[in-house]
Simulated assay, not measured.
Amino acid sequence: MHFRHLGNSGFKISEITYGNWLTHGSQIENDAATACVHAALDAGITTFDTADVYANTAAETVLGEALKGERRESLEIMTKVFGPIGPKGHNDVGLSRKHIHDGVNGSLKRLQTDYIDVYQAHRFDHFTPIEETMQTFADLVRAGKVLYIGVSEWTADQLRAGHTLARELGIQLVSNQPEYSALWRVIEAEVEPTSRELGISQVVWSPIAQGVLTGKYLPGQQPPEGSRATDEKGGANMIKRWMSDDVLNRVQQLTPIADELSLSLAQLAVAWVLQNDNIATAIIGASRPEQVVENAKASGVTIPTELMSRIDEVLGDAVERDPSITATRSPAQREA
């Protein structure tokens, strides 16, 4: 396993992060989730990403149990705050001082840890002054509950505003967590250049495009039974944008490139993301331990420039590049 610095900090994380967004506490049983976490540890993964909103706090609880007994100093635990949790009352959402305060204390208990390595604003809050949010984060850092601050799916302008306030408050905004894959490149035009300028790394989710880039979904055929595309708890809805025959045909055409590198299509997809040096880590999820083992092997892989160009040619106009999409990721109205 290779490691990279997170932003301009001295803090390192593993190139592959194990995340439990759609799995722990919902899609798979707890014993299977624990087996996946242990497989990640065995593969050299030291960084784990979750959020209080995943399975309405259950995902954090499962991860905390799975990591119990591990040397805390050897782990990097990242979680997030913003989404509606608990009974989803009027203060159970957003980035107000109250919700962040309640959120961090709940996360610490569920994760069974004294501190969170990177605490992330899961979305931008249009209804709370950013000054209130960043001051609260700064207080958590000074209290020792949080070491670094990150965000998720913030626009370039939002990143710039947050970074300015963080510096004024004497804390480090080190990361942004966007969706990013060979099929989804909306950060490349604005978010990524701004992040490079500010010393912010990307912690990217869905590097295999919800599983589409693994090649297991074939054009003209029904999705395999038990796959994410058949999961009515949320997976099917997330993946449906990629399920056209055009996209699936293009993915199949990546097979010779993967073969040339002695990689599976999934490994190729994760390795593709890691060719970008503004990417600190790629978050992988899994429902089976063997998936973790396979994807972890993408760490340290170098894809030659000519093969990167061939990947671009194959995927062509199936790639989503519209930078305006990032602004739509943060809700324009309250969910609670």
Rank of each mutant, 00 (worst) to 15 (best):
K240E: 15
P223T: 00
V270D: 12
F82M: 04
I77S: 04
R334F: 07
L213N: 00
G316R: 00
H163R: 08
L315K: 01
A51R: 00
P193G: 05
S299T: 07
D92L: 12
P84M: 10
D317M: 09
A266F: 03
M134V: 13
A298S: 09
H5F: 13
Q333Y: 08
D125Q: 03
T34A: 15
D117R: 01
S96C: 09
A318H: 07
Y54Q: 04
K297R: 10
M78G: 10
Y18A: 08
A51P: 15
L75R: 00
A58D: 14
M1N: 11
I311T: 00
N295P: 12
S152H: 02
V212N: 05
T328W: 06
R71G: 06
E168F: 08
G226D: 14
R4K: 06
D49N: 02
V319E: 07
V53G: 06
L261S: 05
G234M: 09
Y54S: 09
V212F: 01
Q120I: 15
S227Y: 08
Y148T: 02
R321D: 01
M1C: 14
V203T: 13
V118W: 06
L198D: 00
S175M: 05
V146R: 01
V174L: 12
F82Q: 04
R167P: 11
A318T: 04
W184I: 02
Q135N: 12
R250S: 10
L183P: 12
W205T: 04
P219V: 02
K297I: 03
R97C: 10
I100F: 02
K145I: 14
L274E: 04
R241T: 13
T155C: 12
G106L: 07
I200H: 01
A59M: 07
A55F: 07
L198R: 00
S330W: 00
V270F: 08
Q112K: 15
A236K: 06
T61G: 11
G300L: 08
S324R: 04
A156I: 05
L63F: 08
Q222G: 07
V62A: 05
L248D: 05
T50N: 10
L22T: 06
Y115H: 15
D322Q: 03
G89R: 03
E15D: 13
T230K: 15
A286I: 11
R310H: 08
S107M: 03
V37K: 03
Y180Q: 03
E232Y: 03
E168S: 14
V247N: 04
P256C: 01
I239G: 04
P223Q: 01
V118E: 05
S96Q: 07
F82E: 03
P84W: 05
I239P: 14
A66S: 06
T133I: 11
E197L: 13
L198N: 02
T17F: 07
G94M: 11
E65K: 15
N8E: 10
P224W: 07
S195E: 09
V292F: 11
L67H: 01
D277C: 09
E190Q: 08
L248R: 06
L6F: 00
M78V: 15
Q158I: 12
F3R: 12
H99Y: 08
S181M: 10
V53C: 12
K98F: 12
F124Q: 10
T79R: 04
V273W: 04
L261V: 01
K98M: 10
G83P: 15
V37N: 04
I283P: 12
L67A: 02
D114Y: 07
L307Q: 08
I257S: 03
I208N: 09
L261R: 00
Q172R: 05
M238H: 10
